[in-house]
Amino acid sequence: MPSGYIPGALGLALFVVLVAAAKLAGGKVRDNWEHGIGLYGLGLFLWGQYSGLFVAPREAMMGDVGRILYVHVPAAWISMMAFTWAFAGSFGSLMLQAPQQLPKILGATGAGGALGIAAAVALDGTPRKLAAFFGVLLVLAFLECLVLYLGHRFFGWDADSADHFAESSTETGIVLGLLLLFLGAVFAKPTWGTYWTWDPRLTASAIMVLTFVGVSLLRATVSDPDTRRSWVSVATVIAYINIPITYMAVKWWRTMHQLQSTPNTLDSDMTFWLRVNAWAFLFLAMWFVARGWRIAAARAAAEAPPPLPPAREVAR
């Protein structure tokens, strides 16, 4: 089998080309570029789903029921990814409240990250783990700020548009997350004989989805746009940072074993089809988020009060 990364690499290359074309061509292309990535995702999806049903080999223990993995695992991965985008958008919305600070923050996080990684290479034991942890965290913050800086500079992103991105990503994450919970139940019945096993991963996912449902309800119930933006951004950031500790708590509470659903334990044919489906979900999710982003921006523009009349008219 060829590498399962090829369809993903092609899709990401297509994404870069489409974004560049949108920036250079403007007009109709600028407002519709994401359909390209959506169609590519749809193609992968049809291929991956057909193959998952009829081409991929039977799983050694679960037989044909194992085919549910080709929808269950991508839904899990990509809902988590969508919540990560929501976090990035909300964090970005907070950062873009003061875009002139971004170069300074870029310098600080870049230097700190490099220092942390260097310390991790030099040290041993627990200090190494700590240095690596904070180094990687700072590098991620650096990359996020770099993306924000470039987006601000070349695409005119501001705190509002980052928040619209977060809104759309949260919605996509919730849709995929609810699907994931349903698929988990359908998968649990034939394999464990019960619809819900309080499996740590699935339980933590359920709590994660509930947390983000709460955040999006907060968005629905605050009426002033600026207040809404900053409150929802903060709530999203806290909700996301809370995920690992929830997972840890639930895992301790239920130290029940469950089979690994990462591709490493599957044979290479199954890994390939799993990856094709995961890429398909990713590109479809990118289309969902991009469409939702436009809708959120259009709605915000419609809600905004009409601009004040020009000064000269007032003077007359």
Binding site: Q49, L53, M61, M62, D64, I68, A75, V175, L183, L284
Partner: peptide, 26 residues
Amino acid sequence: GGVIVGGWNFVWTAYGATWLVLAGYA
């Protein structure tokens, strides 16, 4: 012998739900 045989109804439920949700959201 420890291997699950059949269960296609569950497979179709899972795939059907996925298609329905994704198409509905789109």
